[in-house]
Write a protein that binds this DNA or RNA. Sequence first.
DNA 1: GACTCGTGGAA
DNA 2: TTTCCAAGAGT
Length: 272
Amino acid sequence: MPWRRPEAGAWGVMVSEFMLQQTPVSRVLPVYEQWLARWPRPADLAAEAPGEAVRAWGRLGYPRRALRLHGAAVAITERHGGDVPRDHAQLLALPGIGEYTAAAVASFAYGQRHPVLDTNVRRVFARAASGIQYPPNATTAAERRLARALLPDDEATAARWAAASMELGALVCTARNEDCGRCPVARQCAWRLAGKPAHDGPARRGQTYAGTDRQVRGKLLAVLREAVGPVPRAVLDRVWDEPVQRARALDGLVSDGLVEPLENDRFRLPLT
DNA sequence: GACTCGTGGAA
DNA sequence: TTTCCAAGAGT
């Protein structure tokens, strides 16, 4: 992956982590390349209108991430001299960076020792160590303890371990159709040794996208991304025929800062 | 802890 | 066709 090359730098790692939050690698790749070519440093992005970040985000989904990445670039420029901070707590204080992303940037970009617990690693640990097919819906204290216990002591080794355990989950120990034949720890895997018992308990609740506010928001924002200038409400009205839900979705976008209302019932991506 | 927040490819 | 889900964060 381009964000694993040394020349990607901390900013490249950070951009990739934002984009990879809930979005598959194959869809991130082209947008990542365009993004880094256009905004090679945090200050370059910080100098842009936030709406440009939202526009360049394209169809990656969850566009609030674009807004937060822009906000993080501004904060880095103002508070950290334009350099992505190395300190975990300072990373965590940036908008859009939570427990996982702070550890990922500190580990992948700066080679530090942090437990990196994403959905891939959690699945690997659930199977190899706990003997269950899938991890709990939300990360538990027990999972964090396990991750800390398994993390190698040496800093450089820990950073390599973080990347390796994630790759193992992403490429081999996948959610469906896991490939135990390629797994380096298959002989020690508690789940495999137990005969791969199927996940019990409640199924992870499905999302059901059709007809939700999220779908309406997506349609509204798609129109605004493509528009050059301000868009009249009448144009936005065409994306959804149910007026109450349509208004609620647009209001939500405005209150999230993804859309800026103008005079005369017109709208655009935010300039400030 | 429960919910919200996009999108599209694969099973 | 429907379901599942992909390197989470914020409220």
